[in-house]
Amino acid sequence: MTSVSAEADTAALAMRASQPPVELVSGSNGGVERAFRAICLLAILLPLMLLVLLFGGALIEAIPRLSWDFLTSYPSRRAAAAGILPALVGSAGLMLLTAVMAIPVGLGAAIYLEEYAKPGKVTALIELNISNLAGVPSIIYGLLGLEVFVRVLNLGRSLIAGAATLALLLLPMVIMASREALRTVPRSLREACFALGADRWQTLRQVVLPMCMPGVLTGVILSLARAIGETAPLITIGALTYVAFLPDSIDSPFTALPIQIFNWVSRPQPEFHINAAAGIVVLLALMLMMNGAAIWLRTRLRRRIYW
């Protein structure tokens, strides 16, 4: 018995010895790996370089015009004296009003879909349509706003009509971001809440919403950063291009930054193109600031949630 097993062991050892050692030296696919890495790097560098080129180009052109006066002056027939104050105030007002309208409606819709809606054909249809709406070109929203807000609701070519149109444009994005945020709250916490004798509303208010607020706010700011550059829907509803006053109420006529830029670019005089470049720099800076604010807010609010 022992001799047999000893023989078997020797045989096994002999087999092992005759096999080549385990392959540990680098194989042949190192080149593929490197090439793929290079392609991916290129894929990120390309858009980044384009952005730097665009921003840098605009900045170089804009430098002679960028000054405090440019930010605080009204438009003028003389390019050197023209400023963007009404456009800046108009854009700020638009963003504020848009946020005020888009956040409650968007969050409400998201809460309904995530927390209350029963899964079924109707819900699936609504969800499909929300994703579709996110892809509708903004000029279509402009036409819708023109008909519904400007004409039917008789709001005129006002700040509130512009903001309502932009809010409509942002709704699908706000809804999707809010749903994403609601979904990050684990089921176990909702159950803990129910088990303590809370109803759905209390669970939402005390546990779910405080936890998903960072996600919702980030989504809202990122969509607003997109909206601040929207031109087509505002032109459609009739934002003015030359405004020598500040909007003083929500039904006042207005202009916005992208519209002012569009106006200057389409002038024949090259001096106005410098103004347009300066406007672009201001607009891009605002967008970067909003995106930065979103990141800051997210990390700050997340710190209050301890996992």
Partner: peptide, 30 residues
């Protein structure tokens, strides 16, 4: 559920609340 309390498999304290607030959560929710 107020009269029949429950403890779950995985500990699930509310992450947005302090220890004190967690204990009082049931009262506050009600």
């Amino acid at each position: 559920r107020r009269h029949v309390g429950m403890v779950f498999q995985k500990p699930n304290p509310f992450p947005t609340m302090t220890i004190r607030e967690n204990v009082l959560a049931g009262l506050r929710l009600n």
